[in-house]
Simulated assay, not measured.
Amino acid sequence: MTLTLEQIRTDVADSLGEAPADIPVDENLVDYGLDSVRVMALLERWRREHGVEAAFADLAEQPAIESWAPLLGVVS
């Protein structure tokens, strides 16, 4: 199963207890409460469910969904 931009957004929103519509794809997710523990949990889930091979450091460096998409193998 391929990871999509909307799936990333939904998973991030779920981890923050927010609605996906409230999570922008182009803003720093740290400003919305995303911390390193949640990033690790999301990354582990995506590795397990979608075969993602991204590194935690890469996601932590650019905590925005649109920045993550290419790192997570999402094709636009």
Score class of each variant (00 low, 15 high):
residue 59 L to S: 03
residue 73 G to C: 10
residue 61 E to V: 06
residue 51 G to S: 06
residue 20 P to R: 04
residue 5 L to H: 07
residue 15 S to N: 01
residue 59 L to G: 02
residue 30 V to P: 06
residue 34 L to V: 08
residue 48 R to S: 13
residue 48 R to T: 11
residue 64 A to P: 08
residue 10 T to V: 08
residue 43 L to Y: 07
residue 25 V to L: 01
residue 52 V to K: 04
residue 51 G to K: 01
residue 74 V to T: 00
residue 26 D to F: 00
residue 16 L to T: 08
residue 74 V to D: 02
residue 44 E to A: 14
residue 74 V to L: 10
residue 53 E to W: 03
residue 57 A to S: 14
residue 22 D to W: 09
residue 4 T to I: 09
residue 45 R to D: 11
residue 53 E to S: 13
residue 39 V to K: 06
residue 34 L to H: 02
residue 42 L to G: 02
residue 39 V to G: 04
residue 47 R to T: 13
residue 16 L to E: 06
residue 1 M to L: 13
residue 18 E to M: 15
residue 65 I to V: 12
residue 52 V to Q: 03
residue 64 A to R: 14
residue 3 L to H: 08
residue 13 A to P: 09
residue 67 S to N: 15
residue 19 A to C: 09
residue 36 S to P: 01
residue 31 D to C: 02
residue 76 S to L: 15
residue 71 L to Q: 00
residue 56 F to K: 03
residue 74 V to Y: 07
residue 53 E to I: 01
residue 8 I to F: 00
residue 74 V to E: 07
residue 69 A to M: 12
residue 62 Q to E: 15
residue 56 F to L: 13
residue 68 W to M: 03
residue 3 L to M: 12
residue 1 M to N: 14
residue 27 E to V: 09
residue 64 A to F: 08
residue 26 D to P: 00
residue 14 D to F: 01
residue 45 R to W: 00
residue 57 A to E: 14
residue 44 E to T: 12
residue 61 E to S: 14
residue 22 D to N: 14
residue 1 M to K: 13
residue 37 V to C: 02
residue 8 I to M: 12
residue 58 D to T: 07
residue 10 T to N: 11
residue 11 D to F: 08
residue 52 V to Y: 09
residue 25 V to D: 04
residue 53 E to L: 05
residue 29 L to F: 00
residue 76 S to M: 11
residue 43 L to H: 08
residue 15 S to G: 01
residue 30 V to H: 02
residue 76 S to K: 14
residue 75 V to P: 03
residue 8 I to N: 05
residue 18 E to F: 14
residue 47 R to E: 13
residue 35 D to Q: 04
residue 49 E to T: 12
residue 63 P to E: 03
residue 1 M to Y: 12
residue 13 A to M: 11
residue 74 V to R: 08
residue 6 E to H: 09
residue 36 S to H: 00
residue 28 N to H: 11
residue 1 M to S: 15
residue 56 F to Y: 15
residue 5 L to Q: 12
residue 35 D to K: 06
residue 32 Y to M: 11
residue 50 H to V: 12
